[in-house]
Design a binder for these strands. Sequence first.
RNA 1: CGGGGCAUAGUAUAGUGGUAGUACGAGUGGUUUGGGACCAUUUAGUCUCGGUUCGAUUCCGAGUGCCCCGACCA
Length: 411
Amino acid sequence: MRQSQLFTKTSKTSPKDEVSKNALLLIRAGYTYKVMPGVYAYTPLGLMVLEKIKQIVREEMNAIGGQELIMTNLQRKDTWESTGRWSDEAVDVWFKTKLQDGTELGLAWSHEEAIMEMIQRFVESYKDLPVSVYQFQTKLRNELRAKSGIMRGREFVMKDMYSLHATEADMDQYYDQVIEAYKKIYARLGLGNETYITFASGGAFTKFSHEFQTLCDAGEDVLYVNADKTVAVNEEVLDDASAQLGVDKNTLVPMKSAEVGNIFKFGTEKSDKMHIVYKDREGKQQPIYLASYGIGITRAMGVIVEKLADEKGLVWPESVAPFRVHLLSLDANEQAEAIYESLTRAGIETIYDDRSVNAGEKFADSDLLGIPYHVVIGKRSLESKKAEVKHRQTKKTEEVSFSELIDYLQP
RNA sequence: CGGGGCAUAGUAUAGUGGUAGUACGAGUGGUUUGGGACCAUUUAGUCUCGGUUCGAUUCCGAGUGCCCCGACCA
């Protein structure tokens, strides 16, 4: 795409109503627009990143048999009453509203109850199990205080998957499959090296839960990590977990971390409360086992920014960057146009800075936008027949001849 | 929800009880073009309501909005 056509603009100054690195940079670079505290719009660039993240998650969920669907944001009161989670005392983040006839509705902050209600219509027999469904949905949570930019908003995009099983053993083995899928996801997002699966307290409803925590100074949690980073334990379960793992908790060092995923085994708790059953081989009614698996898509984007951005701006891993190549023309438009055409024809996602602004501004904007490869075409290039290719993350620069450019930039 | 702070142009910021200034941005014309270049010119602002006052953007009160710390975070 041509940068001259992009409707967003970069900004040299930082907004005064933000402090978190992710919000400052994403707003300055034009990836997000702040509507109110905890509520951000995603512009074309921001949306491209979100879609890249979603696609990675989608592929890994599909690989373990997940079926994508989308539930609704308007939720029925009686559905949530059936598990005792309608009241504001039980759940303090509800947004609630009313239909014109007075019927109360909740705006979805989660979808466990909703999926159980829906699944009841389709799962009747043991032959219908197991089932695994997931969605990318906007969650609405009336947080008392939003903070940390897009890492903790009142409106955010989450992937939530729900698996339903006839037996606990079946649930357990699927749960382990999801853990492996999650590891692949974080690796592909560029967070693999510093993301740990940890025991977490599951709240009042679940005995077994795990969190995926990424070491991150902007995070809200604390992880206790050992020297070679092979063991990481959540602060909230430090005593129990270290005992269980046979680790001396005094050898663990506290580090700040951000929760990027959370998985739970609900077991038959929801089924029992909502009377959701299947018929076994003898025709006897049995409760359905449920587990749920979340990944905060927008939060993952925020964590990637926090971890990789440098003093000059954003730095995207190739896997989630909105474009692979940022092509800069420094007063060599004819040549740059030709290269833009050939890159585009080769299927290499390219944003082409065709604006007539100074070189310095193009470089500064390019660093701010954080596209992995910067390809500079200037007057020098016209003589040498070479482009200057700079890798945003390593800051290394190479001269690449025009004829080898496509091969060089190919994923 | 407890505590603290802030509110001036699109953005970031000065300043004043008596005509509100700067930078960036944006517009126009021109010179530029390898790290946010330069000249000329134009554009645009005191959050809302009330009080004190001859006069309030400034002082006082309320409201609204925003930020930070804590609490909360399935």
